[in-house]
Design a protein around this nucleic acid. Structure first.
Length: 547
RNA sequence: GUCCUGGUAGCUCAGCUGGAUAGAGCAACGGCCUUCUAAGCCGUCGGUCGAAGGUUCGAAUCCUUUCCAGGACACCA
């Protein structure tokens, strides 16, 4: 709606400019001015063309606005201000139609075709199944899951995937740790070292095996059985934690399957055949410097075992072979050095390295009483996601995580987060939703039936305008967030809409004797409520019917 | 030493493909409930945008140098 107007203005300006001999080198951009006194939208095109046209910006700007027909562009005013800004004032009555559009489209309002059904694989968390999720995984989970929801809304075909490292060394250590605990339960001698896992969940697994199978594995091959029981136990734990955080993955992809299917072997063979490897000091190296890496990387160690890189190449090739053209990996800052390595390897294999996008999230610190909280009572190590969900709740936690951009070194103040008050911004938004809900409740308790109107007849358009303006921006926010992957802007949007709602609520009595006016106001609020709910759902935060 | 992130109000953070007087929330202070939820609204206070140069009509935003903080520089994953 707003886009149609802006595009039309854009084309008109481009036509005016081309009459003046300007080639299509500089596109017209619109900004929403900070100060409403500068109109609804403004453009700086005249200033940017001053040099090319060798004319003062104000002259150019005036030339433009004199040639724009206001009514056919749904404008009420176009003026030149400042050093040559052109400010546009759009017909408020026309814009208020967005309300009716929202009521018609409901949660589909803001859906875009931008993604054009491109197949996207969004991989995140990918925690080792050897313990609890920690505070950093929480950030990745919140980000990845939110981006999946937002990109779907923007028209991408998104699949979310959790990679399971079930083939490497740490799984071996896990199995041996369980076995040690198993022996311990029978009073046998057992050994745990620095590589072992000491969490109490390992004891639970051993106990489970003891209960179900008794002492059988003290004297029989235990390895494969312990692997499968241990993995499924720990994976179930991960899934449960994530579910409580409102994160459900489409796929859990097994690293081991890449070995079982021979995909790792195939990748190694092809890299060797194509001459991208060489042997040095007994190890096989991959010439990743042929692309952007700063040094070559070992792919087969001198003892014959593989480095992590080998299955990871196979994994990413597998993703590409499944038809995904956009791969997004969400990784912690400690994996930064890995980006070039992986992309270079994919390039050597013949895949498209530009299809791989790695979003790096900076570290999260938990603060309590102004000091960094390092220890978790639960795991004895890092603060776990469960600790946080227990303390602050999933909704508040997701909002806190998402409201900061990924590159921010984040401080999570638990004291603030726990407070069930206006200090936690999620409640501000949920409260806005609940307030509207309560209006509809009161209305229906008075035995009145809400009939959404199709047109505003008695309501002052100016009264609705601040809300309408924010509602109109929703699709533009979706577009920006989906393409630049900045989900924190969804939080900003939700806060902005909630803020306008609270102001409106305070300024106007909604339910009055005047039935017509009441219905029109409720129609407006229904639209606000719809978008509030949808924007929260995009970041995995629920609504509250009542607070 | 090299590379990646940050450094913006007392605190947590937006703004960064250059644009009009630098924003929000919290904290502090002052108002607003005989009216649909005060978890709210309205207002005040608060800034040499780490520092120094440069680019130009214009720089928090771009470039260079530099200082702080976090992270990475494996035949670990």
């Amino acid at each position: 709606m707003i886009n149609e107007i802006l595009n039309k203005i854009k084309i008109t300006i481009a036509n005016i400019l081309s009459e003046q001999g300007v080639k299509e080198t500089s596109e017209v951009f619109f900004d929403i001015p900070k100060d409403p006194a500068f109109g609804d939208y403004s453009t700086n095109i005249a200033m940017r063309l001053a040099k090319i046209l060798k004319k003062a910006p104000i002259v150019i700007a005036n030339d433009i606005i004199n040639k724009i027909d206001l009514t056919s562009h749904h404008l009420t005013k176009a003026e030149v201000a400042g050093g040559g800004f052109i400010n546009f004032y759009i017909d408020k009555k026309y814009l208020s139609n967005v309300i009716f559009k929202i009521l018609e489209e409901k949660e589909k309002f803001g859906n875009l075709t931008l993604g054009n059904h491109e197949k996207v694989l969004l991989e995140f968390v990918s925690a080792n199944p050897t313990g609890y999720l920690h505070i950093g995984h929480g950030r990745g989970a919140a980000y990845g899951d939110s981006m999946a929801r937002i990109m779907k809304k923007a028209g991408f075909d998104v699949t979310t995937e959790h990679y399971v490292n079930d083939a490497g060394n740490q799984i071996h250590n896990l199995i041996e740790s369980i076995f040690a605990r198993y022996k311990e339960l029978y009073g046998k001698e057992f050994q745990l070292d620095d590589n072992s896992y000491h969490g109490k969940e390992i004891i639970s697994i051993a106990q489970k095996i003891k209960t179900e199978k008794g002492e059988y594995y003290l004297t029989n091959p235990y390895y494969e059985y312990f692997r499968s029981v241990g993995l499924s136990y720990l994976l179930a734990g991960l899934k449960k934690d994530l579910q409580e955080f409102n994160v459900v993955f489409d796929d859990w992809f097994s690293e081991k399957s890449l070995y079982d299917n021979g995909e790792v072997e195939k990748v190694l063979a092809r890299l060797k055949e194509s001459g991208h490897t060489y042997v040095f000091e007994g190890a096989t190296w991959l010439k990743t410097t042929a692309y952007t890496d700063e040094k070559d990387r070992v792919i087969i160690k001198s003892d014959g075992s593989l480095t992590y890189l080998a299955p990871d190449i196979a994994y990413h090739i597998n993703k590409l072979n499944r038809g995904y053209t956009l791969l997004i990996d969400v990784l912690g800052a400690d994996h930064h050095g890995y980006i070039n390595r992986l992309k270079s390897a994919i390039y050597l294999y013949g895949g498209n390295p530009d299809a791989i996008n790695i979003d790096i999230l900076q570290m999260v610190r938990a603060l309590k009483d102004g000091e960094e909280l390092k220890m978790s009572k639960r795991s004895g190590k890092a603060i776990t996601l469960r600790d946080l969900i227990d303390e602050v709740g999933s909704d508040a936690l997701r909002f806190l995580y998402i409201s900061k951009s990924l590159s921010t070194h984040m401080d999570l103040d638990l004291d603030l987060a726990i407070k069930n008050s206006n200090e936690n911004p999620v409640y501000y938004v949920q409260y806005a939703y609940a307030r509207i809900n309560s209006l509809f409740r009161v209305f229906s308790e008075n035995n009145q039936e809400f009939v959404p109107v199709k047109e505003f007849k008695v309501l002052d358009i100016n009264e609705t305008y601040n809300l309408v303006k924010v509602l109109l921006q929703y699709p533009a926010y979706i577009e920006e967030v989906a393409t630049k992957r900045l989900p924190h802007k969804i939080c900003q949007y939700a806060l902005m809409l909630a803020g306008e709602l609270h102001s409106y609520y305070n300024d106007h009595k909604i339910i009055t004797e005047n039935n017509e006016e009441t219905n029109e106001r409720l129609t407006l609020l229904k639209a606000v409520q719809t978008v509030l709910k949808d924007s929260l759902s995009l970041i995995g935060v629920g609504i509250k019917e009542k607070m």
